[in-house]
Design a protein around this nucleic acid. Structure first.
Lengths: 189, 189
DNA sequence: CTGATTATTTGATCCGGATCAATAATATAG
DNA sequence: CTATATTATTGATCCGGATCAAATAATCAG
């Protein structure tokens, strides 16, 4: 059950067997149904998820009820509403399992206490933060430098699985355009 | 010369006097002229800046030559093209002093070697990364959830100095709209 | 101080993507 | 398998912000 997570961690930092076991013991299994919501705006940010199987979607809900997708997380990636997780504050976004998923989650308190008990965990967290920052900055760059068609073409090039695997509706939302607009872009008109 | 920087650091982490001196000794003064460019797209990311006085602007240059501003940094904040700084890779954006500025910079190698020599520097870096992540995510949120007028109103509310201190042209660019559009928004039409 | 450059404002027009609407195609539940 | 709901496509229209243009105001260099 923990193979993928073990690989993810040991690819990034060195851990003694005891430390590894301590880390793994903090993670719990969560099986979700398709479309199940596992984090809601306004709740306290309490968990960080590792995706063993399936896909998570993190999205803002606008005042008019519409959604704006910040991120998708597929197999072998971590996902949390980090901005809230850091301070243990209220969530500003929902997290939804887009597919039937198999997740491993760690509680916020456990995550941060590992920083004190496992010597290399600080380094793991550092790498995690750096990666999260880079991903987010790249996405910000896309929005301020590209138009919708260019954003789609870039996504198709850099992350084809996302276009192939997810319904158009969600891909369009991720690109911050309507599904009608995406449909027209795809048909090349 | 190092008072503001000292305060910034000691507000965030505890350091022995010796450690503090070691950290400060890594920083060098740079006085810039107005509009001087201190980091260019394509160069290696080598420095991180602390703004003692003045203002930095970090912006992408699009294929057609137009610019897209990612960030402004005013007094008492750090600024670097972090995504490139982390890996020591090529810059994807320019950094420009928008005003005559007084900066303290640290070389990338020195910054990262402090992680090994100053016990609490890892914690400082962690806080830095967390803060940078939060800022960037908030900006991404603004772009995917707000329209130009709403982005301006939020900026005026949360960061009035930016609107008051910078030329409209730059504020508009930061909001990712034209200066004509900003002018019309301001005049309330 | 003065001329030249740069920034701002205002107006006219244009255009990409949103919205609204109607089918058609798929997916899902029972 | 079938009925129902959801998603995708296509067309018509609309609208916010871009573009282009011109006049004014503000800055800056000498």
């Amino acid at each position: 059950m923990h193979e993928q997570l073990t690989k993810f961690i040991t690819d990034r930092i060195q851990l003694s067997e005891a430390d590894l076991q301590q880390v793994l013991s903090c993670f719990h299994l969560l099986i979700t149904k398709k479309n199940e919501i596992i984090g809601r705006t306004g709740e306290l940010s309490r968990r960080m998820f590792f995706v063993n199987k399936g896909c998570l979607r993190v999205y803002y809900i606008k005042p008019d009820g519409r959604e704006a997708t910040r991120r998708f997380a597929f197999e072998n990636s971590f996902s949390t509403s980090l901005a809230s997780f850091i301070g243990g504050t209220l969530l500003k976004e929902d997290t939804q399992a887009v597919e039937q998923s198999e997740l491993l989650y760690i509680h916020r308190e456990d995550f941060y206490s590992l920083l004190n008990t496992v010597p290399n965990w600080e380094k793991f967290y550092r790498g995690f933060l750096e990666h999260a920052y880079i991903i987010n900055t790249s996405r910000l760059e896309d929005f301020i430098t590209l138009n919708p068609r260019e954003r789609y073409q870039l996504l198709l090039k850099e992350n084809p699985q996302m276009v192939l695997r997810l319904p158009n509706k969600l891909v369009a939302n991720y690109l911050n355009i309507t599904q009608e607009a995406l449909s027209r872009i795809k048909s090349g008109s």
